[in-house]
Design a protein around this nucleic acid. Sequence first.
DNA 1: CGTCGACTTGACTAAAATCAAACCCGGTGG
DNA 2: CCACCGGGTTTGATTTTAGTCAAGTCGACG
Lengths: 256, 256
Amino acid sequence: MTDPIPLSLARLRRSCAECSIQQLCMPSGMNGEDMERLDLMARRRRPLAKGESLYRAGDPLKSVYVTSEGSFKTVVVNAAGEEHVLGFHLQGELFGLDAVGTGQHRCEAVALVDSQVCELPFDRLTSIAIKLPSLQQQLLRVIGQCADHDHDHVEVLTRRQASERIALFVHGLAERYRRSGRPASDFHLPMSRDEIARYLGLALETVSRGFSRLHEDGIIEVHGRRVRILDEDALYAAANGGTDGESPEPRKRSSG
Amino acid sequence: MTDPIPLSLARLRRSCAECSIQQLCMPSGMNGEDMERLDLMARRRRPLAKGESLYRAGDPLKSVYVTSEGSFKTVVVNAAGEEHVLGFHLQGELFGLDAVGTGQHRCEAVALVDSQVCELPFDRLTSIAIKLPSLQQQLLRVIGQCADHDHDHVEVLTRRQASERIALFVHGLAERYRRSGRPASDFHLPMSRDEIARYLGLALETVSRGFSRLHEDGIIEVHGRRVRILDEDALYAAANGGTDGESPEPRKRSSG
DNA sequence: CGTCGACTTGACTAAAATCAAACCCGGTGG
DNA sequence: CCACCGGGTTTGATTTTAGTCAAGTCGACG
């Protein structure tokens, strides 16, 4: 593993500016003392090397986390020993809320690449929220948005066609890159085909074929983990049964 | 549709005693005034006839709800016009939190049978929570538990085999009935095969076959919507690849 | 008693899983 | 510099599974 990236102050500022819960860390209606406390709290950053776990299933809820550099996956291992991927957590995104319900984490969070998290001790967060209605509101909203991610996941999983799931997945990633102020139509996948497959409930070969097919159709360009979206509308159409960009008649596959 | 059930006081008390968010309505460390306000708030009950919608996608967040009688489903209709079922909400269960993230409901809630909900205006809930730390804690926990339901749904959907999804679904229902103090191994499904199929991401015929198979195997007894669990361990095993109660060799299908 | 809707069952078809083999690329060492 | 290695990825051939189409059954209700 390579050494953890030394944290540059400029990068830190940028990552905070792009953070999904920026309003938690720097709410406007906050007095100096609270501000200072929250600032201290949120500053606690932690580096993780690729493959390292931030928490594991069964760990007690201590903190929630925001990816400040890199990316994470959350996984559960079922009774049969298979790993299911519950989510990917890109830069600026909050995760770790799976423990709020029971007080214990239900899944394991693993760094996909060398990464940094911003750690938010949960009890401090709630104790400040009690004093600060706007923070409480914001906290609730952020939690709600995490639930929305789960709903998005469900939406992907209920797509019948594998090709639709894959297109929707790529489209969703692009959306999230855009939201965090990063190029949305040209990016590097932090996760393997296998991990995508375990997220989409498919075999890894099926995922690979799906990517190839989108490439063939001129919707995206793929080269390993490098993805470039050529036609976002067609991608979205492909995610919804291909009623638009796709030809309704059975496609001719190559020349044979 | 039949008339809404007239609310009996006895039933009301019972349903409150079994409610998942009972601690929200009757927290212990609460002064008299708060108690009274919360009581008033929570008492607002509303009957819905089978098929009626409680809210629709796009509706602004007003309240969250607890099923006090009957049951609900939440659904989204996708671009292709297909209905996907996101969840079922049995007696005593909280729902409607899908609007917390954006302030608007993302899905529609429909009564599966003639039902009653206990309506909790969200702004009042949060404004009381600000004054009452224990309520805030509890509120967060309850929201977290709703997110857990979504995770359960994901877990079901990532099961490869249709039979596993179905077994896990039945098992999960039993769990929930048990939790709400109802018979857990002999119950009546409030939803149709079609609705189960749309929840599990399967064709309704596949769901029907799955039930029949569990019946054949002596794990459950099914007669339409009447379900009786004969062997809970085997059911759980069937949900996890059937490594236990199931025979590993290819099964002989009946006699002919 | 007939009708309707929900459910079940069967036969066939389409799709994705599986098994298996190549491929590409970055890194390593000769 | 080039041969070799290994992980991740792509591609192909085959098998298994669930979806689709279609017919039939069951039960509730008018």
